[in-house]
Amino acid sequence: MEKTDNNKAWLLVIPVFILVALSAIIPIMTVVNYSVQDTFGGNKFFWVGTEWFTDVLRSERFHNALGRNLLFSFIILCIEIPLGIWIALSMPRKGIWVPVCLIMMALPLLIPWNVVGTIWQIFARGDIGLLGHTMSLLGVDYNYTNNIFDAWVTIIIMDVWHWTSLVVLLCYAGLVSIPEAYYQAARIDGASKWSIFRFIQLPKMRGVLIIAFLLRFMDSFMIYTEPFVLTGGGPGNSTTFLSIDLVKQAIGQFDLGPAAAMSLIYQLIVLLICYVFFTVMSHVGTDKPIEEKVE
């Protein structure tokens, strides 16, 4: 890697640095400060050391919320990534249907999170909602407010409905950037549809898939608004994910110290998983340049 002699371009980063400092670094410094103290309000703090970290790390409540969150992220990644790739592969590349499909795909992404939660809350209600009412007419005992399984299924379907389009649009962008010459070469070699997907489309989509995977993981791991509006974390605590638990602790109970400790642990987990994903996915297959095989 050659280092450029002109480092003045770094000055252009200063406005971003100031923005990040105000919006991220100062708040995180404050969170670190809160995590080792206790307060009863009025800007009066008492030093407690690492007590909150020990409490959070040993609390069953935190373990359960973390487990639920990991399970949720795992399920939605298993559904949204393959589904997104499949829809992107099925979308037209030319003609009048391209803008129609793209707009249809972008629509769920334009809806604010709390509106999505409200839409699905009404949609799934047994008395007035289309889904809930249809299910009861079909004789299915469906009630997301008191059945844990139904609540989970509803939240997962809601997330898939809301966010699969993001994966689709990213994959589609990756697919349309593949030059026609690759497909011509594959046709000459008599490659099957699967081979084209495996050796041309999938490797060419790797970059956008990393982004889709990371975005969807982080978003699902930090999910708050939709389940909060839909189920409020219930029934019981069955859909109380980490962020909902954190807000309950920080704002509901005003336990700033434990909430700060929990948010730091939460952030470290996100950071670690994202780093591992990013490193693994950006290095996978780099020792075998697939482009050479096709050309």
Binding site: I26, M29, T30, V32, N33, Y34, V36, Q37, T39, N43, F45, W47
Partner: peptide, 8 residues
């Protein structure tokens, strides 16, 4: 409001 301490 940032509640600075020596160790942090």
């Amino acid at each position: 409001w940032m509640a600075w301490t020596g160790p942090t």
